[in-house]
């Protein structure tokens, strides 16, 4: 028997989704939102299209947001979903993303849209397709949930 989402949390997610519809982040499409917010956690799936002029041009990636009932005071769990995980020095082959605003630097004033923007800009500024140097080690040892990892953030300028 799952505890229902707190009203305030559900309302905020609803409003965010409405805003996302009204003002979509360029290159990002909302694929599926939550059918109901009565569960312990809720998934929102996005499609990110590699922008023209970037090394990901023409590619499509699935990004999954998973919020629990403590959202937005707790950060959402954000991972790329197979089959296509972007080859990027801050993205592990299991879809986990090394991005400070998803961890230490999360703020309840951030939004789904802000996170998407940040990920899009991370992809767009990338010059070389490669995995993080410790990818193999990480994917063997990491838990399913990227939030269980205590991240040391990569250089943000890459």
């Amino acid at each position: 028997m799952a505890a229902p989402f707190p009203v305030s949390c559900a309302r905020r997610i609803q409003k965010e989704l409405t805003a996302l519809h009204a003002e979509p982040v360029p290159g990002v499409t909302l694929k599926s939102g939550p059918d109901t917010l009565a569960d312990k956690s809720t998934d929102i799936n996005m499609i990110i299209k590699g922008a023209e002029g970037t090394i990901y041009n023409g590619e499509e990636f699935n990004l999954r947001f998973r919020m629990n009932e403590r959202y937005p005071f707790e950060s959402p769990e954000v991972v790329f979903q197979p089959p296509n995980i972007p080859l990027h020095p801050h993205i592990y082959s299991n879809g986990h993303i090394c991005l400070s605003i998803l961890g230490n630097d999360w703020s309840p004033a951030l939004t789904i849209s802000a996170v998407c923007l940040s990920i899009v800009s991370m992809l767009s500024s990338c010059k070389e397709k490669k995995r993080p140097p410790d990818d193999q080690f990480y994917i063997r040892t990491a838990s399913m949930n990227p939030k269980a990892t205590r991240w040391m953030y990569h250089d943000d300028n890459v």
Partner: peptide
Amino acid sequence: IEKDGGCNHVV
């Protein structure tokens, strides 16, 4: 310091 993911640039 414990290394637990991320690249060699540690803080």
